[in-house]
Design a protein around this nucleic acid. Structure first.
Lengths: 215, 215
DNA sequence: CTTTAAACAGAACTTTTGTTCTCTGTCTAA
DNA sequence: TTAGACAGAGAACAAAAGTTCTGTTTAAAG
């Protein structure tokens, strides 16, 4: 395997090689199978298959293409050329489950969220939750909104999460601030009152990643 | 073109044809190009390429496969076998543009929205708009939220849209109700006051499809 | 100006691969 | 029983397509 370090960016490739690469990509888009050397030749008005062969091998050397030796239409575009999916599907919960050590029921329905919301992390333990009125004014969350959360029992200082108050039988979306032995549940709307309580009085359900509302 | 009506569902296909179809699908998944008759033959321990050829043509006849005549590795799996994308990308606007007859500036940034929000319609004229505070309390929309809208100058009775009040130099997200010569802009939060005005006092920017908020 | 490597041209060659053909066995409906 | 549709075997053929070879041009470097 002889890999050169010279050209890294596509723009640094020579004119002919850029043309060939683009042709292959468009061809595969259209026909789902790759072009032959001859098809590239006629498609780009190149005079000989050997010229195509030459440049294709150059592209393979520089990692812009993959190719099975002796395989008809065996050109491939490496995986890293395809953008990762812009959205991921996460399971949808019908209600908040108190004890998260037990299995979370998934009713088969799923919800699509932007990959960006994961901030590079895996989608493990990420769920969508359709909230009902009792969460309403806490954080500009409306009845019927879908809240996306990562299930976790701890939050860093200043992070926003879904927090249960077992004594009051309430669930809130609040920003968590640690103050020594105490925690302060700050509302996201200034109209609401902050809530100060002992750490063992709250139960953290998860971290809120985002919210989606369909009108 | 001889198309039969007999087998419609994959499960109705004969054992051998199901095997071949699955083999092709797995092969393409793995190598990105299709298998040859011989590769299918050896891969499925079939005794002759002609047997493979026979069943492949049967699969083409019944619409489970597509195939270019005389094309090496020219097998294709029809589009309808692949699920439509779960999300679509729409251009992002930096601000509300008053006169929508002129070209909408697009800064290259885009936003991912669930396909479901389009309700089967095309993504034409759909834009994402990051709102700033002046829209805030109208509809539980917060500063920094991304509102997804379809650009249109008319709304049906009861639909929710982004509505400009040129005289007041205000923009609101409200539910529109027609009352004869008048229109009523109903708030989505009951705390707010409805607004009654003449039809020529408002300018409809678009219909609101949804809202996304990243924490 | 000479040298050298990259790029191009054209043709021929070899392998790969789709296609055809003939023959055989099996099952079903008439 | 028998014609006919269907599936399978095996071999051979022909087209498709990758590869190699030789030689020429071009452009940059020494």
């Amino acid at each position: 395997m002889t890999t050169r370090n010279k050209p890294i960016y596509f723009e640094q490739l020579h004119y002919q090689q850029r043309r060939i690469f683009n042709f292959i990509k468009r061809f595969m888009d259209r026909y789902s199978y790759g072009p032959t050397m001859r098809e590239i030749m006629t498609g780009l008005d190149i005079s000989s298959t050997s010229v195509v062969y030459y440049h294709v091998n150059r592209l393979v050397e520089t990692g812009f293409l993959e190719k099975g030796h002796g395989i008809s239409r065996g050109l491939r575009i490496p995986d890293h050329y395809f953008e990762p999916p812009a959205s991921v599907s996460v399971p949808m919960l019908d209600e908040i489950i108190t004890n998260f050590s037990e299995r979370v029921p998934c009713y088969g329905r799923r919800h699509e969220i932007p990959t960006e919301w994961l901030r590079g992390r895996a989608a493990d333990d990420v769920y969508a939750l359709r909230v009902n009125t009792h969460l309403m004014y806490d954080a500009m969350v409306n009845d019927g909104d879908v809240v996306v959360l990562r299930r976790q029992s701890r939050l860093n200082d200043g992070e926003i999460g879904i927090i249960m108050l077992p004594a009051k039988k309430e669930t809130r979306i609040r920003r968590l601030k640690y103050e020594g032995e105490w925690v302060c549940l700050e509302p996201l709307m200034s109209v609401m009152q902050p809530l100060r309580c002992r750490q063992d009085e709250i139960q953290i359900v998860g971290k809120v990643l985002g919210l989606m509302r369909q009108f």
